[in-house]
């Protein structure tokens, strides 16, 4: 692999209202002295889709999982994550509240071994919502927003595991947005899906930007260019370039980015 200069970067700050930003974020796994993610400082605009791209092992998933502190148990995270004027990376911050406001959808669909509606209501009940009308409203709206309602409205009591992979992933999205988060983090949500399910998912995500800020990790560059407004390119644990998606894919400033998006990488 060609050795790129990891200190040469091009990172902009979007002009829109910023929903979430990080400053000098570093992630250390286990007892490693060497960080798996180095000095990542990015700002994510509100109600837009931002894509994080890069080869496997570039640190994009590590970075995404740090944003709602999913790495708490397995890694040390230094630096600042600023959300609503609070540094949510502080150990004093209530991490459960953080995750309620910053939801996450994973690479492999992971519905609970419960019925479709229970998948959505379980966390709502834990959060103290007991009104049955309210619960069933949330089930319906979140399933509609995730474009799954028409397929499952007659079988809400069926096991979620009986759904297809694509349906399961949309159920996971519905489950996340039923919590009414601000921000939705998606970690390669389409990698386990077939092309038709992927297209459906992308349409759904576009729709969701009306109400949510979305940050999506993807290894699929067409997908990134189709759906995102901004794109960050990760390489070997460093963010090398962050700009408007069009710019990244057509006139990148950094050689590594250029090589990656044109397929001449590695």
């Amino acid at each position: 692999m060609e050795a790129y200069d990891l200190n040469q970067t091009h990172i902009i700050i979007p002009p829109e209202e910023i929903a979430l930003s990080t400053k000098q974020l570093q992630v250390y796994y286990g007892h490693n002295q060497q960080p798996s993610m180095t000095n990542a400082s990015l700002s994510f605009p509100r109600f837009q889709i931002t894509a994080l791209i890069g080869a496997s092992g570039s640190g994009k998933s590590t970075y995404l999982r740090a944003l709602n502190r999913m790495n708490d148990r397995i890694a040390r995270v230094d630096g600042e994550i600023r959300y609503r004027g609070t540094n949510i990376n502080s150990p004093k911050v209530n991490v459960y509240e953080v995750r309620k406001h910053i939801g996450m959808v994973f690479q492999k669909p992971n519905p609970f071994a419960k019925s479709i509606s229970e998948n959505i209501t379980f966390a709502l009940k834990a959060a103290g919502i007991t009104n049955r009308q309210e619960l069933s409203n949330r089930v319906e709206t979140s399933l509609k927003e995730a474009a799954l309602w028409d397929e499952v409205k007659d079988s809400l009591n069926k096991s979620a595991l009986s759904l297809s992979g694509g349906q399961q992933q949309r159920l996971c999205i519905a489950r996340a947005i039923a919590m009414k988060p601000d921000i939705l983090l998606l970690d390669e949500p389409a990698s386990a899906l077939d092309p038709i399910s992927t297209t459906k998912l992308e349409v759904t995500l576009k729709e969701l930007t009306k109400k949510y800020t979305i940050i999506i990790v993807t290894h699929n560059m067409e997908q990134a260019s189709r759906i995102s407004t901004y794109t960050a390119f990760f390489h070997l644990g460093h963010v090398l370039e962050y700009d408007q998606t069009e710019k990244i894919f057509q006139t990148p400033e950094i050689q590594a980015t250029h090589d990656y998006v044109t397929g001449n990488f590695g």
């Binding site: 709602n68 999913m70 459960y96 509240e97 953080v98 995750r99 309620k100 939801g103 996450m104 994973f106 492999k108 992971n110 519905p111 609970f112 071994a113 419960k114 379980f122 966390a123 834990a126 959060a127 996971c172 489950r175 996340a176 919590m179």
Partner: peptide
Amino acid sequence: SQREAGIALGLSNWRTIRGIILP
């Protein structure tokens, strides 16, 4: 992935264990 799913929804570890992992 089931643990992650629970925790990502803002559930406590204990709630995740009791309500999702145990069943």
